[in-house]
Amino acid sequence: MRHLILALLPCAANAETLTVMTYDSFVSEWGPGPAIEAAFEAECGCDLRFIAPGDGAALLARLKLEGARTEADVVLGLDTNLMAEAKRTGLFAPHGQTPALDLPVAWADDTFLPFDWGWFAFVHRTDLTPPTSFEELAASDLRVVIQDPRSSTPGLGLVMWVKAAYGERAAGIWDGLSDNILTVTPGWSEAYGLFTEGEADMVLSYSTSPAYHLIAERDATKAAAIFTEGHYLQVEVAAKLANASPLADRFMEFMLTPAFQAAIPETNWMYPAAGPDPFGDLPKPGKTLTFTPDEAASLRANAIAEWQAALSR
């Protein structure tokens, strides 16, 4: 009986347990979670516990629901588009590190540490000649599947991408693209599923997506189209909470060591934030587009409205 009561109580942060809140595909059997858990537990002699309340977008919502009562010590898996809003909650503490990072942009944030990154890109089958820019795509009769920016991080990434590349002209670009958009899905997996089924010529994903097919499936028929405008960068970050256990600092340090970073490429299919390029053969964009977290936060609502207006016609 006592066990039952204990099991039902929010467990008082046991010094031996570190709780990391992250997105569900991170902890799944095929994500980096299991390998990272084993490696960190061996190193710290503690218990690493993941809670995974949904996809990346759900993390912030969950954190806001829980507020300061959250049992999480570390939140892992927010991206640059959501950082400013996450910081405004006041729940996070500075990481206090000066890490050596391999990112295409400089990193100076004192609260959030990157653990992996990638460029958004349209993935296509190699039997078609891909467009080399949004304008070329708009002029073609190719059909693409994208995700809804209101429910998916890649969807939001695309809207920010067009905004970063075209600024004031973004609305016009969306007008041109609207007849190329086959449909809009709620999340990444539905869109990617439609693409692999052959419904669409291209799908919004990452420039590293073809690596999955190459490495895991020995399938060289998928490639990412490189656009001359440059590609929008997604950086996935982690931060520790203000009242976290001391183990949180150890975890944040561990995050940028090879034991963690080596697990990333072939589970998350992203570039590790610290370490050698695992996908040397993949084509890379000539230019990286990005917004600061504050810019991203202030542009977001307007960019989504432009997207929505153009596609609702």
Binding site: S28, W30, G31, S189, Y192, G193, T267
Partner: peptide, 13 residues
């Protein structure tokens, strides 16, 4: 069902 979604999210269509 959650497992199906996780598999799709991990490219394992």
């Amino acid at each position: 069902p959650l497992m199906v979604q996780q598999l799709m999210g991990a490219y394992r269509m």
